[in-house]
Design a protein around this nucleic acid. Structure first.
Lengths: 249, 249
DNA sequence: CAAACCAATTTGTGATCACAAATGAGATCG
DNA sequence: CGATCTCATTTGTGATCACAAATTGGTTTG
């Protein structure tokens, strides 16, 4: 019964890493867009991105198709693609929808979260506290993301989670601008960063769904409020080609 | 100043119709999936669909990529694609998320709707009443969709609207099953169909956002409840190749 | 000097070919 | 007779070519 020819595979390295090139390209472009490596309103071309990433146009074509699908890219009628321009109206829409959807996710999470997961969330928040004290802005942004998505995962709904991931992706360029703004205003870090995290933790600990929803909404809306007051919507349409080539493989 | 060589274009027929083949294929497959033309869990191949639609695999490849992106298709790790199998859990998730998101859309709509748009919504509901009295099940389904999306459009948020469209797309196969079930239970048509439409209309007329939200949530949740009680989740995994070729062009 | 024309380039798009991985059926072995 | 191996087929994937539409830059014209 033991033939060790084809069953034993020692290589389980590629468990998580994407295998197909278009997947890799998609992930690269996705993080590039959501981290602000492309200017708002900047136009891109398939061949251009392909050369930038050192691949043929083929994988880029498929990746771009997906990015357009989740509104990370925009396809204008006249055969040109661009990063959706940031605007006050779009920002407001995203903030409001996020507050509602992610508030609901917090609601669900409070109903279902395990003690173990709750402890993990509390510990993420502690790490975020360290980042705030050290003025580590990128650290704050990333732990904040961890914190939020730990809660959303606890809501235990694939459908809901994918909706939220899509909303965050669309908010990516705004987040990048927020990061930049916070670097120049370190004293705002605790307010904007922590937001209503403590209320959220207390509510989750008490498994109080309605209060959790409220805390999550407040967290999102107050951050958006600060953003509106301190980050201007510059209509940067061109320039900023930015580096990206990294390493496709 | 008047050179009539290239500026006068009398043909504005293709205003709304898609120009690219992959767009056409995408729309075809999308409606095919959401109208239940593919069985739940049925596996599909790029080349297979291409032959079915009479095109090369190329446009199908791009269309399928988009369908996977919005979860209308599922990509299994082992290089096979399938229609996401219907399940009780997935249905519950979709119903709950829909109730929350679309409830919020009704909330926003109540705050912003114009008299003109409200009149249009009321008239759509009247047409739906006719369809119900005549026992026209497909008519009920389609006017119901019109009714809901007229409200969601009044919410005036592209971000929100696209999220909702995505949720409806994912619910497509369930809706198809609902249609089939209702055809055998015509007496349930008024209850399931109209649901809480009248309360919704009254609330919208009064511009009462909170009551509108509640009515929309009730409408969705009671329909889901009826579905759970009367439609069984048959695990039909194969067969049912179904016609589709229609006309790509 | 500015507006209009024109040609060369760039663009998305569709089709086809090549290839490696996965599948499935047929043969072989125990 | 059942499990295993093997080989032909099918599959997604990447690259390349061809083409029409659109853009762009240069030139010409008034």
């Amino acid at each position: 019964m033991a033939n060790l020819a084809n069953t034993n595979d020692d290589e389980r390295v590629d468990e998580v890493e994407p295998h197909s090139l278009h997947e890799k390209v998609y992930l690269q472009l996705r993080t590039a867009i959501s981290s602000g490596k492309f200017a708002s309103g900047e136009t891109v071309t398939i061949r251009g991105l392909a050369e930038l990433l050192g691949t043929s146009p083929m994988p880029v074509r498929e990746a771009v198709r997906r990015l357009v699908q989740d509104r990370s890219l925009e396809m204008l009628p006249n055969r040109t693609m661009r990063v959706p321009p940031m605007s006050q109206a779009r920002f407001d829409e995203l903030a409001d929808v996020r507050a509602n959807v992610e508030g609901y996710a917090a609601f669900r999470a409070a109903e279902r979260i395990s003690d173990r997961n709750f402890a993990a969330i509390r510990s993420i928040n502690d790490r975020m506290g360290v980042a705030i004290r050290e003025g580590d802005v990128p650290g704050v942004i990333s732990t904040n993301r961890e914190f939020h998505f730990a809660i959303y995962s606890a809501a235990d709904s694939d459908v809901l989670l994918s909706v939220i991931e899509n909303l965050w992706q669309q908010s990516g360029p705004y987040l990048a601008a927020l990061l930049h703004a916070l670097s120049n205003a370190p004293n705002a870090l605790p307010t904007v960063g922590f937001g209503h995290h403590f209320e959220l933790i207390v509510a989750l600990d008490a498994r109080d769904a309605e209060v959790s929803r409220k805390a999550m909404m407040d967290d999102i809306l107050t951050a958006a409020q600060w953003y509106r007051q301190n980050v201007l919507f510059d209509t940067d349409v061109e320039g900023k080609k930015t580096e990206l080539k990294d390493a496709v493989r």
